[in-house]
């Protein structure tokens, strides 16, 4: 972070990381109870999201009963919201938007981040200068505000929301990838490739990038969590796809009645929290599995 701290721990045995079998990572991950709990929870959420619409093929926006019915009454397990919608159905369908946007936005984040970070870290010089200035520019814009502007101008849809979140979130990934590339490009096995005349593209994508995979995978997990929170935030600000149910949307429309009815706001929020928490536990677990020596931190 500072100039005089060496950014590159020179004698780091990276080659060992390449050769460490993924089975070993999986073994470490499995031993981490919190991470496994996160993984199981996330898989359950995915399962419910995929199966839900088949089990309850209904319109999630349609009223199903009286308004603001408390949980458990008249067979509504979680109650109804201020428009009489069944909250179970709302949560079931809302996860679609959450997971789709979370995955799509994270994919965009990671793609742009890798592209910028890899080129900047590998080529250095003016390429790095230009790319990092662009990265800094995006870090100056409050991400949520920029996403709000983009979604508002291009009208809210699953696509515009995913793109907006991806476009505002990549700088952190780009910095991480660049740092990894700066470190890896100086290592002997990379220099060796260069010495035997390997093409730059080959070195970047098949030699360095796989070695940068561990921190990138962890950062990808964190990106999914952040994207989910962004999606919820935008929906809370009434910027959600009008045709797709969303947990943030449920919180937003039911907010005026919170003092009379806590449940239509509480349950969707809990759903968001649990989803992001699982993703985050998985990310922590991966981090520990990749860096066993840092575990005591």
């Amino acid at each position: 972070m500072t100039e005089s701290t060496p950014a590159v721990p020179a004698e780091e045995p990276v080659v060992i990381e390449v050769e460490r079998p993924w089975r070993e990572v999986w073994r470490m991950f499995r031993a981490n109870r919190a991470a496994v709990a996160g993984l199981v929870t996330l898989l359950l959420i995915v399962l419910v999201t995929v199966l839900g619409p088949f089990v309850y093929p209904v319109d999630p926006f349609a009223a199903a009963g009286p308004l603001l019915l408390p949980p458990g009454e008249q067979g509504f397990l979680l109650g109804t919201d201020q428009q009489g919608r069944d909250l179970v159905i709302g949560l079931l369908y809302g996860s679609q938007s959450t997971l789709t946007v979370g995955a799509a936005a994270a994919a965009i984040t990671i793609t742009i981040g890798i592209l910028f970070g890899a080129l900047a870290g590998y080529y250095r010089g003016w390429v790095e200068e230009v790319l990092m200035r662009i990265t800094e520019f995006f870090q100056v814009l409050p991400p949520l505000l920029l996403a709000m502007v983009v979604v508002l101008l291009f009208s809210p849809s699953i696509y515009s929301i995913s793109i907006a979140i991806g476009v505002v979130s990549w700088p952190a990934t780009a910095r991480l990838v660049r740092a990894e590339f700066l470190r890896l490009r100086e290592l002997d096995f990379v220099k060796a490739e260069r010495a035997i005349g390997a093409r730059n593209a080959r070195i970047i994508w098949t030699i360095i990038l796989p070695n940068a995979a561990p921190p990138l995978i962890v950062s990808a997990a964190l990106s999914v969590g952040i994207a989910i929170l962004f999606e919820a935030g935008l929906a809370f600000l009434q910027l959600s796809d009008p045709n797709v149910m969303s947990w943030g949307y449920l919180i937003s429309v039911n907010r005026p009645q919170i003092l009379e009815a806590w449940w239509p706001v509480t349950f969707p929020g809990l759903a968001i929290f649990i989803t992001v928490l699982s993703v985050s536990l998985i990310g922590d677990g991966l981090n520990d599995a990749f860096n066993p020596k840092l575990r005591q931190r």
């Binding site: 969590g225 929170l229 919820a232 935030g233 809370f236 943030g248 919180i251 907010r255 919170i258 003092l259 806590w262 706001v265 509480t266 929020g269 968001i272 929290f273 992001v276 928490l277 985050s280 536990l281 922590d284």
Partner: peptide, 22 residues
């Protein structure tokens, strides 16, 4: 830190309102 990362900030705010109002 886990909570801070995973809690949607607007929801935390609403929960505080419910708690403190009632």
């Amino acid at each position: 830190a886990l909570l801070g990362y995973a809690l949607p900030v607007f929801w935390t705010g609403i929960m505080l309102i419910i708690l403190l109002a009632s």
